[in-house]
Design a protein around this nucleic acid. Structure first.
Ligand SMILES: [Mn+2]
Ligand SMILES: [Mn+2]
Ligand SMILES: [Zn+2]
Ligand SMILES: [Zn+2]
Lengths: 133, 133
DNA sequence: TTTATTAATGCGACATTATTGCAATAATAA
DNA sequence: TTATTATTGCAATAATGTCGCATTAATAAA
């Protein structure tokens, strides 16, 4: 199906690119100045995923997060990589770390969803390092 | 809090152990002969998770699946491992494959959730190998 | 065995997330 | 300018998971 340019699509993609992180539908809705319906946001995001400009991550909270794909070489699909979810500042980011694995005979992988959770560097230093304050 | 033995707990744990797979609340509810309330199943499962006898996996479908922990050595927590979800027969299993990764400075991991999706050996042979039939 | 304590359960209500049908709108082609 | 149809908003719906509360039942105490 042919695609059309719309303010909604531009705003969503721009936000995802600028943030550099994986965002939930809710975060997107809040961050964008123009009001966009929830259903529309999902439709736009799923379209981006289908077109390969964005990828979806499902975190342990069961929610969907979306991040722009950083293209590797030409049309090659983005290499599977880990994601990190900070449970303190509640942000999800794509890690450089690639996901490596081997499978039993006959298994065929179609998609990879790997999320590590814990504290990011900022939050871990805040909470743990110093006892005082 | 002290634990009590109940038919519900026994049935759920027995089912998980026998199946050898990660099951959703729905699959558990259907597979058990005695009727158990949904809320109860979740409470029992979360209790098992808390006690370390079961671990939770969140798949790309956003649902929670539960599997018994195969204890390694003594009280050591189960080593993080990959999970495989067959999108054809819709089953999730724990893989032997351990999850290895390194993190940027300062990051602290609390939990790991890695799910590979695709076709298991049974389903891939059914669908792809032979063109006929 | 009987009684007391409180963990466990069922039920309904509730919160959240995500999807879908449909009519109205607007981007793009003709 | 007009026609086509992708896109959007809105409301309804499905699905997952949690919570409060009264009741039941497992276990300890008498
Ligand atoms: Mn990513
Ligand atoms: Mn497992
Ligand atoms: Zn953080
Ligand atoms: Zn299969």
């Amino acid at each position: 199906m042919k695609r059309r340019n719309t303010p909604t699509k531009e705003a969503v993609l721009k936000l995802l690119a600028q943030s550099g992180k994986a965002l939930s539908h809710e975060a997107i809705e809040k961050a964008i100045d123009i009001p966009i319906n929830r259903a529309t946001i999902y439709r736009v995001l799923n379209q981006f995923c289908h077109d390969g400009t964005v990828h979806k991550i499902v975190a342990e909270d069961g929610k969907q997060y979306f991040a722009v794909c950083m293209k590797c070489e030409g049309d090659a699909p983005q290499e599977p990589h880990f994601h990190f979810r900070c449970t303190s500042c509640d942000s999800i980011e794509c890690l450089k770390e690639p996901v490596h694995f081997s499978l039993p005979e006959g298994y065929e992988v179609a998609s990879v969803n790997c999320v590590l959770s814990g504290l990011c560097s900022k939050c871990s230093s805040h909470n743990s390092t110093c006892e005082n304050e």
